[in-house]
Structures are given as C-alpha cells and as structure tokens.
Amino acid sequence: MPDSSVPEADAVGIDAPGTDSGSTPIRVAVTGAGGRMGAAAVDAIEAADDLELVAALRRGDDLEQVVRARADVLVDLTVPDSTEEIVHFAVRNGVHAVVGTTGWDEARLAALTDALAAAPGIGVLIAPNFAVGSVLATAFAAKAARFFESVEIIELHHPDKVDAPSGTAARTAALVAEARRAAGTAPSPDATRTGTPEARGADVDGVRVHSVRLRGLVAHQEVLLGSPGETLTIRHDSLDRTSFMPGVLLGIRSVTTAPGLTHGLDAFLGLEER
C-alpha cells in the first residue's frame, strides 16, 4: 500500500531555477482543497519550507479569501465547470495560477491568453498532468511517434473522473499528431469498415484514444506504437496521488517567474523551450 503521507514529495530534485530556501516563502492558496488531490496538495505545501499555505478553499467558499490572504500563487484543483472563473479571478487580482483542473479547450485557452495580455507579469500554468513520469512518457511518445506506422493511446482512470479522454491523453495525442505531421508520417492504417464505431475509441487529432474507467485505478496511460515486426509500449502509472505533488510544487515555484500562459510542465522540466 503506497504511503499516503506527503513530506517526501519534494525529494526528487526538481526545484525551479533560483529557488532559495532562505528567501521569503511563496504564499499559496488552494481551491478544491476538499478533494483528494486538493488535500494532498495542501499537505505538500505545508511540508515545504519555502512555501506558506495562506488559504485552503472548499466548494462554495468566497474567492475573495485568496486576495485577503495576499496569496502569490493560486493552485486550482476544482472541477471543469469552475476552473475558468477561478483562474480569471486570480489573473484579474494579480495572482499567479497553477491549474490541474481539466476542461481547458482551445477557446478557453485563447480567452485566458487575452486576459493575461492585460495582466503583465502574471503567469498561469495549465498542467494536464503533474506526475513527472507522465510528462516524460508523453515527451518520449511524441519523440518516437514519427518512427512507427501506427500509434494508439489507452488511458485508464478511476470511475469518479468526470472527463474522457483525460487531459493527459488529449495532450499526448496532440503532441504525437504534431510530431507525425512535422515528419510527414502517414496516418495510422485502419481497415475497419463495419462494427460499433465506439469500439475504435475517440479520434483525437487523428490519434485513436481509448478510455477505461475502473475502481481501484488512479491514473495510468499506455501509448502503443507499431511497425511491421515490432511494437513499442510507453506506459506510466500513478499509484498514489503523492506522485503528482513534486510537479505541483515545481509549478508553484516556477510560475512566478514565467509570465503569460505555460501549457504543461515540459518547459519547467527543461524538455522544451517555453
């Protein structure tokens, strides 16, 4: 059984450049603190010497608490129906945001980009996944995708998850598709002509994505790549929500020096230019 405590969450050595444990702590507020992910984030922030938890908001709490607490960074771990309002509130009030809530489609991202243009110096990180291993697995899949004839994605989560496919799978599919287009790779072959259409999964930017919802799972993803005579499987498993905490802390420490919109932890991990 994984240890549900979080004091070890910062032990992977991915502090943001310039982090100084002797400097003034970053003041952090959390929305969605009543959920499992939010509760884990609260514990991780409280255990970090360079961060100070100044507000932990649950459903229905007044967002003005974030302002009254003089938060530097807001961590949003709520639900898709609420996240846009919460993040725009933070931007309007000069508070950086780290967002782990899904539901940020192209239209929402464009509106947020416009809002940030009117708030110079404010940074927002939208992170489809905070697990460092998951971010790496997606990067590896995008790098490998142009070398294989076929690619499909299977994502597996607990049945309480409200969206499908997951934000991680959607981002993986987008990056895989972008890499294949840039390399001139042909679409994955598929001779299916009859049967139940849903059996082939969702078409996300030309990549088939299959969603599994099963009690006992946390967050898991497989990218399957194939060419004649060989297959490659890139799989990541989050077995406990503590796996997301190093990424949450990295996002908090990094977003204050990254004005504008950052999509994904990749840049903060040095995987790509921001």
Rank of each mutant, 00 (worst) to 15 (best):
M1S: 15
M1C: 12
M1R: 15
D3P: 01
S4P: 14
V6N: 09
A9W: 02
A11F: 06
I14Q: 03
I14L: 07
D15T: 13
P17V: 04
T19C: 11
D20C: 13
G22Y: 12
S23N: 14
S23V: 04
R27V: 01
G32I: 05
A39I: 03
A39E: 15
A40N: 13
I45M: 08
I45K: 08
A47H: 08
A55M: 02
A56C: 03
D62P: 08
R68F: 06
A71K: 09
T78C: 13
V79T: 14
E85N: 06
E85L: 00
I86D: 11
H88Y: 08
F89R: 06
G94I: 06
H96R: 06
T101R: 01
T101P: 02
W104T: 01
A110W: 01
A111R: 15
T113H: 11
T113K: 13
D114I: 12
L116S: 07
A117F: 07
A118M: 02
A118S: 12
I122D: 00
A127C: 06
V135W: 02
T138I: 03
T138A: 03
A141R: 06
K143P: 00
F148L: 09
S150D: 13
S150N: 10
I154Q: 15
H157Q: 15
H158Y: 05
P159T: 13
P159Y: 13
K161N: 09
V162L: 15
D163V: 07
G167R: 00
A169H: 02
A170D: 00
T172A: 08
L175G: 03
A179G: 00
A186Q: 11
P187F: 07
S188I: 10
P189T: 14
P189G: 14
T192G: 05
T192V: 10
T192F: 03
R193K: 08
T194I: 10
T196G: 05
E198C: 03
R200L: 12
R200Q: 12
A202I: 00
D203L: 00
V204D: 00
V212K: 07
G216R: 06
V218L: 08
Q221W: 04
L225V: 04
P228R: 14
P228G: 09
G229K: 09
L232Q: 09
L232R: 14
T233C: 11
T233W: 10
T233Y: 09
R235N: 02
H236T: 14
S238G: 08
S243N: 12
F244L: 15
F244K: 05
V248H: 10
L250I: 10
I252A: 04
R253A: 09
S254G: 13
T256K: 14
A258P: 02
A258T: 14
P259C: 02
G260P: 04
G264Y: 09
D266L: 01
F268T: 09
L269Q: 11
L271A: 05
E273P: 01
E273V: 07
